[in-house]
Simulated scan of single mutants.
Amino acid sequence: MTQNPKAIVVRAFGGPEVLRLEDVALKPPGPGEVLVRHGAVGFNYIDVYQRKGAYPLPLPTGLGHEAAGTIEAVGEGVTDLRAGDRVATINAGLGAYADRRVVPADRLVKLPDELDDAAAAAVIFKGLTAQYLLRRTHAVKAGETVLVHAAAGGVGQILSRWAKALGAFVVGTAGSEEKCAAARAAGCDVAIDYSRSGWPEALLAATGGRKARVVYDSVGRDTFLHSLDLAEPFGLVVSYGAASGPAPDIAPELLNKKGCLFLTRPSVFPHNADPARLRANAADLFDAVARGHVVPEIGARFPLSEAADAHRAAEARATTGAILLMP
């Protein structure tokens, strides 16, 4: 272990400037734990919410839910992992914004040789999000129409490409014509710029009036009510993020009026809380990567010391694909 492991520490909620790189103390891994040297750290928009205090956390706190790297040491009782194994982690508690980290062994998945650290960090959290959305929240079938909001983003591109591989007709929205082009390149049959007025009507015109069997909405306030209008009767609206702000409250009766719709608000963490389920889901994801159904798209890389700039770029929606922090 290096003498001075480093990590991003948040001591007050606020803007990106509160992200400070500090020396931290790391104990050797205890029973059931593993020390991992990070090769790449993934950014997710939940990191912004937690930095701002929208999801309050005890201070001081670390940030980050996913990283990929190499095991340096294992604690007592860890028999299925060893030093030198390449692994990725998700849902091990906050603190992935670091060059090294001690984590529970049951929060790790082994990486296939063909997936390097950057690709793994770009895909593990976002890919497992897409995995449960496409496989468990709604099992997408060939011929169904799927609507993906923010289709040029990290999760959006994975959702679009994977849904297309499953045989769906994929409709995407994005915030500019450039991002719409990225969404089409990621598998969308139709991509509509939702920053323009009248975009829901333009979407229906482009699909010949076809509404979606399932709508995947990570945008929230700016799209949610439109999502209810764009789901087919008895369709499902999945609200799994709030990039533009929280979705507005609605009365249950509105779901009836919009076509007897179903509505859910899932999260990646409960779907991967069980270690065996986590590894099975990861195996499904890695198989999709091997088949080319999921392609890790890296939009930008920032040194770990410049995590604040990564957050600024994300909040400005200035990138497509995944943002990585490189220790």
Rank of each mutant, 00 (worst) to 15 (best):
M1C: 10
M1G: 13
N4H: 10
N4W: 01
A7I: 03
V9T: 12
R11V: 13
A12P: 10
F13N: 15
E22F: 08
D23Q: 14
D23A: 15
V24S: 06
P28V: 11
L35S: 14
V36D: 10
G42M: 05
Y49D: 03
P56I: 03
L57G: 09
T61M: 15
E66I: 00
E66W: 00
A67V: 04
I71G: 08
G77H: 01
V78K: 00
T79F: 04
L81I: 09
L81P: 08
R82W: 00
R82S: 13
A83I: 04
G84I: 05
G84Q: 08
G84V: 10
A88R: 06
G93P: 02
L94F: 12
L94V: 06
R101G: 12
R107M: 09
L108R: 12
K110Q: 14
D113G: 13
E114N: 15
E114C: 10
A122F: 02
V123A: 15
T129M: 04
A130Y: 02
Y132D: 11
L133C: 09
R135G: 12
T137K: 09
H138Q: 10
A150Y: 00
G156P: 02
L159T: 06
L159S: 03
L159D: 07
K164N: 04
L166Y: 05
A168C: 09
F169N: 13
V170D: 03
V171P: 10
T173E: 01
T173P: 01
T173S: 05
G175M: 02
E177M: 06
K179G: 06
A181M: 05
A182P: 07
R184E: 13
V190L: 07
S195P: 05
S197H: 08
S197P: 09
P200H: 10
A202I: 03
L203D: 10
A206T: 12
G208V: 09
R210E: 14
V214M: 11
S218R: 00
G220V: 02
T223W: 04
L230E: 00
G235K: 00
V237R: 03
G241Y: 05
A243M: 08
S244G: 11
I250W: 01
L255I: 08
K258M: 14
K258L: 07
C260A: 14
L261N: 05
T264W: 03
T264G: 06
P270T: 08
P270S: 11
A273P: 07
R277C: 12
R277T: 15
L278A: 12
A280D: 15
D284C: 14
D284M: 15
L285G: 11
F286T: 11
V289Q: 05
A290M: 05
V295G: 09
V295W: 02
E297M: 14
G299Q: 04
A300H: 07
R301F: 07
S305W: 05
S305G: 15
A307W: 05
A310G: 03
A310D: 02
R317H: 14
R317S: 07
A318L: 08
I323Q: 06
I323F: 01
L324S: 04
